[in-house]
Computed example of a mutant assay.
Amino acid sequence: MDYELAIENTPDTIPGGTGVLLIHPSTGETDRLDTDFLKTDTDHLLVVSTRTTAREVQQKLEYYDVDETKADILDTLSIERGYSRRSSEHVHYVSSPDDLDGIVAKVEEFLTTHDGKLRLSFDSITEMAYYADEDRAFDAIAQILDLLAEHDAVGLFHLAEEVHDPEVVTRYKELFGAVITLTEDGTVTGDFE
């Protein structure tokens, strides 16, 4: 199954099972790319947020006109920070951004319980690695990519380039094979094998 990819300077479609790495400056404006990815050609979507709370994700989806009835959110921050949480059937929580087993399990649960075209946004690998460590984060992302392939889904994974050592960035590029780079001035380029 192919998925439309409505992001400039990238292929028109990508096959199911593809994970796309979005490399960006830490101050880069990724919301537009993220929401363009999520709202195109999809039946259900999951936003895994290690950077913002569920409420902030909901505000972003609303602002960019993403159909929230299709959206599930995995909030990894609120419990650890002691924020109030309003559970619903579409908002899920794990205890912290370094609960990598919990994150992988929730992604698997979403992919297993939804049909049709499924998209995942993972914002962000950088924050998860900050809370856990580079190797554990890398292993968790590799597991999630395997789940995308198993369920014919696609995902967009955020990585703030300058926060990581160059060899870490290279390791992720090799893991993904499909890379979008956003520069400080807003230029978008795609590198798809």
Rank of each mutant, 00 (worst) to 15 (best):
T187M: 08
I14C: 10
T189I: 12
Q58H: 07
Q58V: 04
K117E: 09
Q143I: 01
E184I: 09
S87K: 12
A132Q: 03
K106R: 09
D2W: 12
T189V: 12
D165C: 08
S26L: 15
V66S: 08
I7M: 05
T13L: 13
S49I: 00
D98I: 06
L5R: 06
D191E: 14
R51E: 13
P11Y: 03
V169A: 07
D31I: 03
G17L: 05
D34S: 15
L147N: 08
I103R: 03
I144S: 05
D165M: 13
L61W: 04
P25W: 08
V154Y: 09
Y131E: 10
T10I: 07
F37N: 08
E174L: 14
A142Q: 15
T170P: 06
G102K: 02
Q143Y: 05
L5F: 07
G16Q: 06
E127I: 13
D152T: 03
T187G: 04
T40S: 14
L120H: 04
D135W: 09
E56A: 14
V104Y: 06
T10C: 10
Y130T: 12
T27L: 14
T27Y: 13
T183C: 00
A160Y: 14
V66L: 05
D65W: 12
D34P: 07
T69H: 11
G102T: 02
S124C: 00
P25E: 06
D31S: 10
D65S: 14
F192E: 00
N9F: 04
G17I: 08
T27A: 13
I14V: 15
S96M: 04
S26R: 15
E29Y: 14
S49K: 00
T189S: 15
D67A: 11
Q143E: 12
H92F: 02
E162P: 01
D99W: 04
H114P: 01
P25H: 06
L61V: 04
D101Y: 13
F192N: 02
L175S: 11
Y83H: 11
A105I: 08
D99Q: 04
Y131F: 15
I79F: 11
E29R: 15
T10A: 07
T113Q: 07
I23G: 08
P11Q: 01
P15H: 07
D185A: 10
E8M: 11
D36A: 12
D43I: 01
L120Y: 03
P97Q: 04
T13H: 14
T30V: 11
V91Y: 01
T52G: 09
T40Y: 10
L22V: 03
V48E: 00
T187H: 06
T42Q: 06
G28T: 08
A129M: 12
Y63T: 14
L118A: 03
G116T: 02
D31Q: 07
T35A: 02
V20I: 11
E108C: 07
S121G: 07
A153W: 03
V20A: 00
D123N: 13
V179D: 09
F157T: 01
K106C: 00
Y64A: 05
S49G: 00
G19K: 07
G19S: 06
L45D: 12
T189P: 10
E80W: 08
E4I: 14
R55P: 02
Y130P: 03
T76S: 05
E80P: 03
A140P: 02
Y3T: 11
R32F: 15
E184R: 13
G155E: 05
P97G: 04
V104M: 06
I144Y: 05
L46M: 02
E161L: 04
L5E: 03
V169E: 08
V47Q: 00
